[in-house]
Amino acid sequence: METLTFHFDRGTRPSSGQPQLVGVVSSGNLEVLIEPASLNGGCDIEVRTAAHGFGAIWQAVISDFHDRWQLADTRIAINDMGATPAVVSLRLDQAVETLLGGPPASAPTGGQP
């Protein structure tokens, strides 16, 4: 297993609510645990993955996620068994939407103008 850690400062969207777990660790999938934490406005993400050597891809996926959500005072733990970047993004968004109760402010709503 490889462990990668990421930290982001100055998030603008504090998390609230109870810790949430989404996804299932199995062949080719992952689980995400997200929870509020006192981190002085920061967001900590720890990835435990069975796929070694993909740090640059994880950095890109996690940075994109943080750019979308701008989470503050949030801790995220990811247990990965080889999920694709698209599945990682989907699970991360699903976890935050479950915790916060909706999509990011910049996300399209799907409604008609």
Rank of each mutant, 00 (worst) to 15 (best):
Met1Leu: 11
Thr3Tyr: 00
Thr3Ile: 13
Thr5Asp: 10
Phe6Ile: 00
Phe6Leu: 03
His7Cys: 05
Phe8Ala: 06
Phe8Ser: 06
Asp9Pro: 08
Gly11Phe: 03
Gly11Ser: 09
Pro14Val: 10
Ser16Pro: 04
Gly17Glu: 01
Gln20His: 11
Gln20Lys: 15
Val22Ser: 09
Gly23Ile: 10
Val24Ala: 11
Val24Pro: 02
Ser26Cys: 09
Ser26Arg: 14
Ser26Leu: 05
Ser27Met: 13
Ser27Cys: 09
Asn29Val: 02
Leu30Arg: 07
Leu30Ser: 10
Glu31Ile: 01
Leu33Phe: 03
Leu33Asn: 06
Ile34Pro: 06
Glu35His: 06
Pro36Cys: 12
Pro36Tyr: 07
Ala37Phe: 01
Ser38Gly: 12
Ser38Ile: 09
Leu39Gly: 11
Leu39His: 10
Gly41Glu: 08
Gly41Gln: 10
Cys43Glu: 07
Cys43Pro: 05
Asp44His: 09
Asp44Thr: 04
Ile45Asn: 07
Arg48Lys: 08
Arg48Leu: 02
Arg48Glu: 14
Ala50Trp: 05
Ala51Phe: 04
Gly53Gln: 03
Gly53Ala: 04
Phe54Asn: 00
Phe54Gln: 00
Gly55Asp: 14
Gly55Asn: 11
Gln59Ala: 15
Ala60Arg: 11
Ala60Gln: 14
Val61Gly: 10
Val61Phe: 05
Ser63Cys: 07
Asp67Lys: 13
Asp67Ser: 13
Asp67Phe: 06
Arg68Asn: 05
Arg68Met: 03
Arg68Lys: 13
Arg68Gly: 01
Trp69Glu: 00
Trp69Phe: 02
Trp69Leu: 03
Trp69Lys: 11
Gln70Ala: 15
Gln70Leu: 14
Arg75Asp: 01
Ala77Gln: 13
Ile78Arg: 00
Asn79Gln: 08
Asp80Glu: 02
Met81His: 12
Met81Arg: 13
Pro85Lys: 03
Ala86Pro: 00
Val87Glu: 00
Val87Ile: 11
Val88Asn: 02
Arg91Asp: 03
Asp93His: 06
Val96Leu: 12
Thr98Phe: 03
Thr98Lys: 14
Thr98Glu: 09
Thr98His: 08
Leu99Cys: 15
Leu100Arg: 12
Gly102Leu: 12
Gly102Phe: 10
Pro103Ser: 03
Pro104Ser: 12
Pro104His: 10
Ala105Asn: 07
Ser106Gly: 13
Thr109Lys: 12
Thr109Cys: 08
Thr109Val: 12
Thr109His: 12
Gly110Gln: 07
Gly111Ala: 14
Gly111Cys: 07
Gly111Lys: 12
Gly111Phe: 12
Gln112Cys: 13
Pro113Glu: 08
Pro113Val: 11
